[in-house]
């Protein structure tokens, strides 16, 4: 079961995340689970595979918002980088960066 302690161990800046949820731990944990669900979706991977950079940007941008607000620090850097690269809409190999996100999501998912 996901707990505040587990998230702290994972490397999330729990205090910051909680401060954005009016220190409501239950809400914070619920939103983290929701965020993991969105991260686990294949939508971003599918868009990247299909070369739909606009759609990929929209998805990445949205994920970045959730991850940043919840202060899931290990995920923040790769998602931020992916979003910024997609914003430029240059065709490149996004796979390594995407894989990093998948890997970090799997770690987080194991905490649920």
């Amino acid at each position: 079961m996901l707990t505040i302690e587990k998230l702290k161990e994972y490397g999330a800046d729990v205090e910051k995340g909680l401060s954005r949820c009016a220190n409501n731990e239950a809400l914070y944990l619920r939103l983290v689970r929701l965020c993991v669900g969105e991260l686990s979706s294949c939508a971003l991977g599918d868009a990247l595979k299909a070369g739909d950079l606009e759609k990929a940007f929209d998805i990445a941008h949205k994920l970045k918002g959730g991850v940043s607000n919840l202060a899931l620090t290990p995920l923040s850097a790769p998602i931020l980088e992916l979003t910024e690269r997609l914003r430029a809409k240059t065709p490149e190999n996004y796979e390594p960066l995407y894989n990093e996100i998948v890997k970090e999501t799997a770690v987080l998912s194991a905490l649920l």
Binding site: L34, K62, G65, G66
Partner: peptide
């Protein structure tokens, strides 16, 4: 449009 942001 983001549910997490809405909830926060």
């Amino acid at each position: 449009d983001d549910v997490i942001n809405q909830e926060m």
